[in-house]
Amino acid sequence: MKPAPFAYLRARSLAEAFDALDRHGEEARLLAGGQSLIPALNLRLATPAVLVDINGLAGLAGIALQGGVVRIGALTRHAALEASEIVARHLPLLAEAVPQIAHPAIRSRGTLGGSIALADPAAELPACALALDATIVAMGRAGERRIAARDFFRGLYQTDLQPGELVAAVEFPVQPPERRGCVLELARRQGDYAIVGLAAAATVQGDGALRDPRLVFFGVGPTPVRAAAAEAALAGAGGVAAAQAALERDLDPPADLHGPPQFRRHLARVLLGRAAARLLG
């Protein structure tokens, strides 16, 4: 199938992009990496009147270490994340996630900001943002607005972004060395969206306990899901088994072609066990 017709604006400045968003409202879509939007256009699942291409806004790309924060511009491509020394050193969890996203020819175009703004519930990067307590930097004509990742993902493809806003950057707190993380996912084929994925982080104590765990599942609900009950259980006396049991309260996964809800719940428990072993290992 070919896309339905649309007009195209190559934004040369943020102001031009905001103008277009103001003028066309819901009829306009921002084009970043396009690796989710263009398939939707090709399948006529998305039929915007106007496409506002922000790829030319050089200021929106780049990875910088700023004090205790790694600020990553929205237009930073997955391939750049993969190649980044800063990400590898300070955000190892993110570094582990990126190679699991799709395939090389997709990672060369897909962007961090696009993934965060689309908020696909099965995608890796929104879950990583939650697991790493990232802050989403939204930008509108009025300026920047900072939103904690936990407040950003609102529902299925729903975010806290307001009309006229775009994701400008994501700020990730530098992870201290004792803070460990991993990203595990189960997909039928390498590069597919995960049936269930888990971005997990915790501080490992000398006694082998996991303090302040973050367990963020993806592919199991309308948004990336932070498993609060399991986190509490994991930090407590019950350990991994209690955390796995607690997932029953945290997760309400949907049925789909892969299997029924209990299938995903089961896989989530398995991943939790494996993640805990990794973090402790």
């Binding site: 189960l186 299997g259 029924p260 299938f263 089961h266």
Partner: peptide
């Protein structure tokens, strides 16, 4: 023979 079918056969889901 999908993972879900195999797990069902194993009685795990």
């Amino acid at each position: 023979f999908t993972p879900a079918r195999i797990l069902a056969a194993l009685g795990r889901i």
